[in-house]
C-alpha cells in the first residue's frame, strides 16, 4: 500500500517536473539555445502569483493567467533585448548571456523582496484527495493535468498549425525560412514568449504548494535540465515522459534506499541513458 502511495507521489512530482520543463525544451528545440535563466523564470512566475494573491486578492485562475502574460512578455523581451544580439556570438557568449540574465533576475528579486521565504495558503486549489487510502494532493494533480494539457497544446501547435510549421522552419533553416517569407526574428520571439508563458503557468501553479524564495529557481532548474536532456532535446512529449520517469524513480529510490541516494540513482540512470541514446529518449538527431 505504501508503495502505491510512493509511486503516486512520484507521478505527481514527475508531472510537476514536466510542467516546469516544457518551456525549456521548447526554446532548446527551436533555437538550440540553452536558457539558463529558466529556473528563475519559474521563480518570477511564483512571485507574480504571490503578488496577485496578496495585493489584488486574485485567485488561482487570475494569478495563473497573469503569470502567463507577464512571463510571455519577459520571454519576448529576453529574446529581442538580449538573446537576438548574442546569437551571432560564440556558443560560450550565448550561454553566459542567459546565465547573466538568471543572476540579474535572482538578485533583483533578493533586492526587491528580500531573502524571506513566502508561501501561499494551503487550500487555494483544494486540499488532499483520498482515493481508498491513497492520498493525492490536489494542487499537484492540477499541476499534472495542466502539464499534460500544456504538452499536448504545444505539441499540437508545433505539428498541426501554420505558425508551428513556421516555427519549425525557422529552427531548421533560418535562411531558407526567410526566403519563404517567414520573419525569423518574429517567430523566435514568439517561441520565447510561448515558452515564457508556459513557464509562468508552471511557476504560478507550483507556488500553490511550494515555498517561494529568490533562490528557488536554482533548486528547480537542475531538474528541468535533466528532464529535458533525458526526454530528448526539443521533444515536448519527451519532457513529459522524462519528467514522470524521474519523479517516480526519485520517490522510489528515496523510499527504498534513503533520500540521500535518490539523486545518485536518478543521475546514474540519466548518464546511462545518454550513453546509449545521446539524443535522449525521444530526441531526433
Amino acid at each position: 500500500m505504501v508503495i502505491v502511495q510512493v509511486i503516486t507521489g512520484g507521478l505527481l512530482l514527475g508531472a510537476v517536473y514536466a510542467l516546469f520543463s516544457s518551456g525549456l525544451t521548447l526554446i532548446w528545440g527551436m533555437m538550440n539555445v540553452v536558457n539558463f535563466a529558466h529556473g528563475d523564470f519559474v521563480m518570477i512566475g511564483m512571485y507574480v502569483a504571490f503578488l496577485i494573491y496578496t495585493y489584488l486578492n486574485g485567485g488561482p485562475i487570475e494569478f495563473v493567467l497573469a503569470s502567463a502574460v507577464v512571463l510571455f512578455v519577459l520571454g519576448v523581451w529576453s529574446y529581442t533585448g538580449l538573446v537576438r544580439h548574442v546569437m551571432s556570438g560564440t556558443l560560450l557568449s550565448q550561454m553566459l548571456a542567459t546565465f547573466g540574465l538568471a543572476l540579474v533576475l535572482r538578485y533583483a528579486t533578493f533586492w526587491i523582496f528580500s531573502s524571506n521565504f513566502r508561501s501561499l495558503p494551503e487550500d487555494l486549489i483544494g486540499g488532499t484527495l483520498n482515493l481508498g487510502g491513497i492520498l493525492i494532493s490536489m494542487p499537484k494533480l492540477v499541476a499534472g493535468v495542466v502539464a499534460i494539457a500544456l504538452t499536448l497544446g504545444l505539441h499540437g501547435l508545433l505539428t498541426r498549425t501554420a505558425i508551428g510549421s513556421q516555427l519549425l522552419a525557422v529552427s531548421e533553416d533560418r535562411n531558407a525560412a526567410m526566403l519563404m517569407g517567414i520573419r525569423p526574428d518574429r517567430m523566435q520571439a514568439l517561441a520565447w514568449g510561448l515558452a515564457g508563458a508556459g513557464t509562468g503557468i508552471a511557476g504560478a501553479l507550483i507556488a500553490t504548494f511550494y515555498y517561494i524564495s529568490p533562490s528557488v529557481g536554482e533548486t528547480l532548474a537542475l531538474v528541468a535540465f535533466v528532464v529535458v536532456a533525458l526526454g530528448g532535446f526539443g521533444s515536448v512529449p519527451g519532457a513529459l515522459i522524462a519528467g514522470l520517469l524521474i519523479g517516480v524513480i526519485q520517490e522510489l529510490s528515496a523510499y527504498l534506499l534513503g533520500p540521500v541516494y535518490k539523486d545518485v540513482v536518478v543521475y546514474a540512470l540519466f548518464v546511462a541513458v545518454l550513453w546509449i541514446r545521446p539524443q535522449g529518449l525521444f530526441g531526433k538527431f
Binding site: L13, G258, P259, V260
Partner: peptide, 20 residues
Amino acid sequence: DIAYSANTTDVSSQVLQLKD
C-alpha cells in the same frame, strides 16, 4: 533514521517512511 539533503525538491518519501 533518515538522512536527506537540505536543498531537495521533495520530501514525501521521508514523510511516508515516518507514517509507516
